[in-house]
Write a protein that binds this DNA or RNA. Structure first.
Length: 803
RNA sequence: GCCGCCGUGAUGGAAUUGGUAGACAUGCAGCACUCAAAAUGCUGUGAGCGCAAGCUCGUGUCGGUUCGACUCCGACCGGCGGCACCA
C-alpha cells in the first residue's frame, strides 16, 4: 500500500472533475431542484481566509449530500466585485480596478478550487462586468419607472476620508464602516430607493422563513415598527398646530410641555410670535449644524430653549403648557415633535429636572405601592390612571382607546427604517442610468443603451466630486445620444444594489434579454439554503428581500421571500481567541494548511471544530486529529476482504455501520457536521479493531466520507473497484432492523443515583425488570433492608428505586 | 440602558419531548516498537477520599419544581452580538 499523499490525490481528482464537468448543473434533469447558495465574497487582495472556508465547506458537504440523495442541485459562485476597497487599492497602486479585480478573482477562484468545492463554474458571475451591471441598471430603471426610486435633498452621511455618501447601514456608531473615519452630515441631492413602502411586508413575511431567530429579530428591530397615535396640540392665539406622535396616549394628562426638533418647520413659523427670537435662532443654528452623532456622542446631555410667549394647549385637560426646542428630539422620526410626559418617560424626566418643569404622575404601578405624589422616579410601565379626570381608575390599555377618542387623535404607525440612499460619489460601481436635460430634469436612459458603460478616462483620486464627472467620453456620449446641453448622472450605485439580485442571476447567468428568464426563476428560486456570516444580517438581507418584494409586486415573480432557509457560519478566531486581523498578525492562511495537510484534512478539521454557527478559535495542533482520521481510513484498505455475505459476520460492527449511516445522514441534513464526523470516527475506530473489513462495509464508509473529504474518498472508491465517481453514487441506505439491538442496558438507580446496571433482553416485562433490579446483590446491599417506596421504570433505560 | 444568544475537564466540544454528564478529538503521562527519534499501537487522564470494593462532590452562583435537572422555572454573576435619545 502506498502512503497517503494528499497533494498527488487532490491534484489528480481536481483535474479529473474539471475535465468531466462533474459538478455542472444538469439543465435537462427532471429531478427535484435544490438551490444552495453561499453569500458571494468580495474578492479582496488578501485572498480567501479560513473563515470563508467554514461556510463554503458546509454548503459543499450539503450540496454533495443532496446530489447523492437524488436532487438536482444549483450551487454557484460569483464575485461581489464593485466597491470601495478595489478602488482604494487602485488609488494606492495605480492599477485600474478592472485589472486588480481580475487578478484577485483569479486568486480566489483558484483557492476555492483547491479546496475541492463543487461549484458549477459555468455559472460564475461578477458584478463589475457589463453583462451583469447592465441588469443592475435595469433594476434601477424598473424602480425609477415605478415610482420606487427618487432624487431628493437630504441630510446624508458623508465620509471625509472616502469622499462619499454612505447609507445609514454603512455607518457604524458614527464611523465609516470601511475606513473607520468619523462621519459628518451634508445636505445633498441623492438617489433613494423607497424601501419604506415595503416596511410592513418586510416585517410580516419574516414569519414564513426558516432563519436564525436572532437574525429575524435584528431585522424587525431595524425596521422598528411602532404603533401609536398622532395627537394635535393647538397653540394659544395662533393658527398653528403641533402634531405629535406617541405610543402612550394613556399618559396624555401628564403632558406638561411640548418639544420640537430643532429642524422642525414650525420653529420658523412661530418665530414671529415669540419674545426670545434671537436666542431660539442661535440655538437652532448651533444644533442643526452638528451631526446627529455629535449631538449624541459628544454628550448625551439634553439641552434646549423655550419658545417664550407661545403656549400649547393640552387637549386632554386644556391646560397651557410651554413649548421647547431641544436636541433630544429627532426630526426624521414620527412628526419631529413630542408630547413630553416627564413622570413616565426617562428622557422627558431628565429634561424636566434640568429645566425645572412640572412633573405630574398619571399612571400608577398596580403591583407596587407607589407613594402618592412620589415622582422621584420615572415609571414607564402601564398601570392604573390617576390625575386624569374622568379616566381615573382605568388601566392603561383601556385608557389608550378612550382618551384617543376623547381628543380625536388618529392611530398611526411609524418605522425606524428610512429610505435607502443608493448613490455614491465613487468610480468603481455601476453607473446610474440617468441623464439630465437642459433644465436639469432627470430622464431614464432607454434600455437599448444598456449596459451604460462605466467610462475609463477618469482619475480615481477622490476629490469629493464624482470621478465620472471628469470623463470627456461620458459627456460626449450623452450629448451624442441625447443632444447638446444634456449631461450624465455622475454617481454610481452602492454595491449593495448589485448584491440585492445576484441570486436571481445564477438561475440564468447568460441571459441577454432578461435579468433571468421566467422559467429559470420558476425552476430554481427561492434559494433553499443560504449560508453566510451573521454580520450581513441587516444590510444585505434587508435589501435583497426588498428587491424580491418589488419583483413580486410588479408580477415578475410569485414568491415573497428570496431565502427560504438561512444559516450563519460562526467566525474563526485566532489561536489567541481574538479576531484574526492583519494588524495583530494572527491570521492563518488557508493555502498553507491545504499545502501542508491537504484540503480534505482542512475541510474535516474545520467541520469538526464545533457547531457550525459558533465562533471558535483556530488550533493548528488539533488539525492532526483530522489528518489522522483520514490516514486511518486510508490504512484500513489493507484489511478489506471481499466477503460473500453482505452482512458482516461481526454483528456488533454491522449494527454500528447502520447506526452510522443513519446518524451521518440526519446530522448532515441538520448541518451538524461535527457530530457526523465524530460518528464516523467511532466507526473507523471499531473497524480498526476488527481483523477483516468487509468490502461492502468499507465502500459504505467511503461514501459517507465523500461529502466531507471528496478527494481521498474518490481515490479509495477507485481503488475499491468503483468505475464511476463516488460523488455520483446514491447515498447508502440504512436498515432499521440492523440497528435494533437484542438487549439493552438497564441502569438501576436508588434515589436518582446510579448504583448498578445490567443487560436485559428485549422480551422482559416491566415487572420482570423491576424484580431483577431489586434482586441484584449490589442493590440489596445498598438498600440494606430498607423498603422501596416507589419504583419508576423508564422503558429500556432506567429503573429508579425510591426509598 | 434595551433586545437576543451563551456559560460543561488542561483544550475544542458531546449529551436536550428531563433519564448512565464528559462521546469524539487535542494535549499530557506511562508502556510497546526503535540504536535513537518521528510515525504507529496500547493503557490512563473531572476533583477529592480509599490498599481495594467503593464512596462523596461536580455542567457560572444561589434557590425552586421533580423519583430524577447540563436540560424546566426564578434571582444573580460573567461573556458575546445587535440597537442605542426612535417618543
Amino acid at each position: 500500500m502506498e502512503k497517503y499523499n494528499h497533494t498527488k490525490i487532490e491534484k489528480k481528482w481536481q483535474k479529473e472533475w474539471e475535465k468531466q464537468e462533474l459538478y455542472k448543473t444538469d439543465e435537462e434533469s427532471d429531478k427535484k431542484k435544490f438551490y444552495i447558495l453561499d453569500m458571494y465574497p468580495y474578492p479582496s487582495g488578501e485572498g480567501l481566509h479560513v473563515g470563508h472556508v467554514v461556510g463554503y465547506t458546509a454548503t459543499d458537504i450539503y450540496t454533495r449530500f443532496k446530489r447523492m440523495n437524488g436532487f438536482n442541485v444549483l450551487h454557484p459562485m460569483g464575485w461581489d466585485a464593485f466597491g470601495l476597497p478595489a478602488e482604494n487599492y487602485a488609488i494606492k497602486t495605480g492599477m485600474h480596478p478592472k485589472d486588480t479585480t481580475q487578478k484577485t478573482t483569479d486568486i480566489f477562484r483558484k483557492q476555492i478550487q483547491h479546496l475541492g468545492l463543487s461549484y458549477d463554474w459555468s455559472r460564475e458571475i461578477s458584478t463589475h462586468r457589463p453583462e451583469y451591471y447592465r441588469w443592475t441598471q435595469w433594476f434601477f430603471l424598473l424602480l425609477y419607472e415605478n415610482g420606487l426610486a427618487e432624487r431628493k435633498f437630504a441630510k446624508v452621511n458623508w465620509c471625509e476620508s472616502c469622499k462619499t455618501v454612505l447609507a445609514n447601514e454603512q455607518v457604524l456608531s458614527g464611523f465609516c464602516e470601511r475606513c473607520k473615519n468619523e462621519i459628518v452630515q451634508k445636505n445633498l441631492e441623492q438617489w433613494f430607493f423607497k424601501i419604506t413602502e415595503f416596511a410592513d411586508a418586510l416585517i410580516d413575511d419574516l414569519d414564513d422563513v426558516d432563519w436564525p431567530q436572532s437574525t429575524v429579530i435584528n431585522q424587525r428591530n431595524w425596521i422598528g415598527k411602532s404603533e401609536g397615535a398622532e395627537i394635535e396640540f393647538r397653540i394659544q392665539n395662533s393658527e398653528f398646530r403641533i402634531l405629535v406622535f406617541t405610543t402612550r396616549v394613556d399618559t396624555l394628562f401628564g403632558v406638561t410641555y411640548i418639544v420640537l426638533a430643532p429642524e422642525h418647520p414650525l420653529v420658523a413659523g412661530l418665530l414671529q410670535d415669540i419674545s426670545n427670537k434671537k436666542e431660539v435662532e442661535a440655538y437652532v443654528k448651533e444644533t442643526s449644524t452638528k451631526t446627529e452623532l455629535e449631538r449624541t456622542a459628544e454628550s448625551k446631555e439634553k439641552n434646549g430653549v423655550e419658545l417664550r410667549g407661545v403656549k400649547a394647549i393640552n387637549p386632554a385637560n386644556k391646560k397651557e403648557i410651554p413649548i421647547f426646542v431641544a436636541n433630544y428630539v429627532l426630526t426624521h422620526y414620527g412628526t419631529g415633535a413630542i408630547m413630553a410626559v416627564p413622570a413616565h418617560d426617562e428622557r422627558d424626566f431628565e429634561f424636566a429636572k434640568k429645566v425645572k418643569l412640572s412633573i405630574v404622575e398619571v399612571v400608577r404601578d398596580k403591583t407596587r405601592n407607589s407613594k402618592a405624589g412620589g415622582v422621584a422616579r420615572v415609571y414607564t410601565g402601564s398601570g392604573q390612571l390617576v390625575n386624569s379626570g374622568k379616566f381615573d381608575g382605568m388601566d392603561s390599555g383601556e385608557a389608550q382607546e378612550k382618551i384617543l377618542a376623547y381628543v380625536k387623535g388618529k392611530k398611526k404607525t411609524t418605522y425606524k427604517l428610512r429610505d435607502w440612499l443608493v448613490s455614491r460619489q465613487r468610480y468603481w460601481g455601476a453607473p446610474i442610468p440617468i441623464v439630465y436635460d437642459k433644465q436639469g430634469k432627470p430622464h431614464s436612459i432607454p434600455k437599448e443603451y444598456l449596459p451604460w458603460l462605466l467610462p475609463t478616462d477618469v482619475e480615481f483620486k477622490p476629490t469629493g466630486i464624482s470621478p465620472l464627472a471628469e470623463s470627456k467620453e461620458l459627456r460626449g456620449r450623452v450629448e451624442n445620444i441625447f443632444g447638446k446641453g444634456w449631461r450624465p448622472e455622475v454617481d454610481t450605485m452602492d454595491t449593495f444594489v448589485c448584491s440585492s439580485w445576484y441570486f436571481f442571476r445564477f438561475a440564468d447567468p447568460k441571459n441577454e434579454k432578461e435579468f433571468a428568464s421566467h422559467e429559470q426563476i420558476k425552476k430554481w428560486l427561492p434559494v433553499d439554503l443560504y449560508m453566510g456570516g451573521a454580520e450581513h444580517t441587516v444590510l444585505h438581507l434587508m435589501y435583497a428581500r426588498f428587491f424580491t418584494k418589488v419583483l413580486e409586486k410588479l408580477k415578475y415573480i410569485d414568491f415573497k421571500e428570496p431565502f427560504s432557509k438561512l444559516r450563519h457560519q460562526g467566525m474563526i478566531l485566532a489561536e489567541d481567541g481574538r479576531k484574526m486581523s492583519k494588524s495583530l498578525g494572527n491570521i492563518t492562511n488557508p493555502d498553507e494548511i491545504v499545502e501542508r495537510f491537504g484540503a480534505d484534512t482542512m475541510r474535516i478539521y474545520e467541520m469538526f471544530m464545533g457547531p457550525l454557527a459558533d465562533s471558535k478559535p483556530w488550533n493548528t495542533q488539533n488539525i492532526m486529529g483530522a489528518r489522522r482520521f483520514i490516514e486511518r481510513i486510508w490504512r484500513l484498505q489493507i484489511k478489506v476482504k471481499n466477503q460473500k455475505s453482505s452482512l458482516d459476520k461481526n454483528k456488533e460492527l454491522d449494527t454500528l455501520l447502520h447506526q452510522t449511516i443513519k446518524k451521518v445522514g440526519s446530522d448532515i441534513e441538520n448541518l451538524k457536521f461535527n457530530t457526523a464526523i465524530s460518528q464516523m470516527m467511532i466507526l473507523v475506530n471499531a473497524l480498526e479493531k476488527a481483523t477483516v473489513v468487509n468490502l461492502s462495509s468499507y465502500k459504505i464508509l467511503v461514501q459517507l466520507v465523500a461529502p466531507f473529504a471528496p478527494h481521498v474518498a474518490e481515490e479509495l472508491w477507485q481503488k475499491m473497484g468503483g468505475t464511476d465517481s463516488v460523488h455520483k453514487k446514491e447515498w447508502p441506505q440504512f436498515d432499521e432492523s440492523h440497528i435494533i439491538a437484542e438487549t439493552y442496558t438497564i441502569v438501576v438507580q436508588i434515589n436518582g443515583k446510579v448504583r448498578a446496571k445490567f443487560e436485559a433482553s428485549t422480551d422482559l416485562s416491566e415487572a420482570q425488570i423491576k424484580e431483577k433490579s431489586l434482586s441484584m446483590e449490589r442493590i440489596r446491599k445498598c438498600l440494606s433492608g430498607k423498603k422501596p417506596q416507589r419504583i419508576i421504570y423508564v422503558f429500556g433505560k432506567i429503573v429508579n428505586i425510591v426509598v
